[in-house]
Design a protein around this nucleic acid. Structure first.
Lengths: 236, 236
DNA sequence: AATATGAGAATCGTTAACAATCCTTGTCAA
DNA sequence: TTGACAAGGATTGTTAACGATTCTCATATT
């Protein structure tokens, strides 16, 4: 269970404290435990991580530069809440980049990498069987990051990682209330195509997979303004 | 001459001061006026931009997160000096992303966008005729950013912009001493293919163009360690 | 002459206090 | 009851001073 090996391919973070904060918040976002528009108070984060305000501030700036957090002047940091247009952009970008990436994977597909992906899918299946929803979400996104990392191009892997993370936010916003929309067994089929060196099929399957997720999004379902308020109003 | 319209597609910077610093340093890097490994002293930047140290610090952190600047603990910020492997990664990423992007441009290619690109090429030609080297370098890179922006996908445009900027660093390091390696008239030919809606040809031309630049790089020519030191040692 | 050493200066990193802005809450008037 | 308004508290933004590390350069020693 290699926890955050692929999730930290080239994080450019300089300080260990800041990197930890960035990774923790990123993980929480990927697992959809931090819903969009959640306020990220500086003081809360300070005593949550036991660090000074400066580190929290810098970490939030980094998260903001990745589109995971929105920084509103004099208001503070909030978990980003992408617009539907941005959601489209992110998925179109992923389709374009990831399919091209897989299609070019003909060389450099050694057994070691394939076995690593196999092990990952096993972990995914286990998490699904255990009904461990956050873990399923996290591993589900990580599969795409691992796929990109398998190309050996860390720069590209970093780009994909950023897009996958934003996708988690988007699914949290526009996805079906149950949680993940579809994955089912599409990941294994992609890997199977790769295992038999049919990169074109893998690319097509990947495109279909992403379009499947994208199709499960509903731009109208979201924008609850503030979830708490809505829930309270529903209970009265 | 739309100065930095396309260069600022989604800069995620929150403060106007910091955004200015980031853009200025980015521009200087793209124009290769700031060679790799140049020390970026905080105090120098402070009175250069007339802002407090905090803004400089945050701007440098953002630049570091984009791979344009390297932050060494207790040492300060330096203009990044990519390794040859990283250079390969960046160009492979660009080839993958930009060619796929152009190949999918069949729709959304209205005359307005084409005219904008035409105007840009004219500016490029003028700069070349005027022997304005920094401007040539800047516009040359900006063409690719405009091309990405023409897709209407700001997310993708931001990714391309980051890669183009790092390419400038790479060319500054490994490129021919004269300056830009090749561009010549390849940009106009790409646009011509687009104008006749032959996106496949445009994609191929773009790939050839990028490989041409990549081929002009010499991984061994670089690494002067510290230019000053080398020069001093040569004089003694 | 070359290297090692150490004091001083310069730079970066951190903390703490201060200032500014925003949010909440209570009050008052229409 | 509803709306505006103001005071208080909470949170963010900024500045300045302090501490830590590194760099420079002069000095001394081999």
């Amino acid at each position: 269970m290699q926890s955050e090996s692929a999730l930290t391919p080239q994080s450019f973070a300089t300080d260990p404290d800041e990197q930890l904060i960035v990774e923790r918040i990123s993980a929480a976002v990927m697992e959809q435990r931090l819903p969009p528009d959640t306020k990220l108070s500086e003081s809360k984060l300070c005593d949550a991580f036991g660090v000074g305000r400066m580190h929290v501030r810098r970490a939030l700036l980094l998260l903001g530069s990745q589109g995971i957090v929105t920084l509103k002047p004099n208001r503070g940091a909030f978990v980003a809440s992408p617009e539907p247009e941005e959601a489209d952009e992110v998925f179109e970008s992923r389709i374009l980049i990831e399919t091209a990436l897989v299609a070019k994977m003909t060389d450099g597909l050694d057994d070691e990498i394939l076995q690593g992906l196999e092990r990952h899918l096993e972990a995914e299946k286990n998490a699904r069987n255990s009904q461990d929803r956050p873990e399923v979400i996290r591993l589900s996104g990580e599969f795409h990051v691992l796929l990109a990392a398998a190309s050996g191009n860390r720069t590209l892997a970093r780009v994909v990682r950023e897009l996958v993370m934003r996708s988690s936010l988007i699914v949290a916003l526009f996805g079906p209330p149950g949680g993940v929309s579809c994955p089912e067994d599409e990941h294994p089929r992609i890997l199977a195509a790769l295992a038999r060196r049919d990169v074109d099929a893998a690319s097509r399957l990947l495109a279909a997979h992403l379009r499947h997720i994208q199709g499960g999004l509903d731009p109208n379902v979201a924008r609850p303004e503030h979830q708490n308020l809505a829930r309270i109003l529903g209970l009265t």
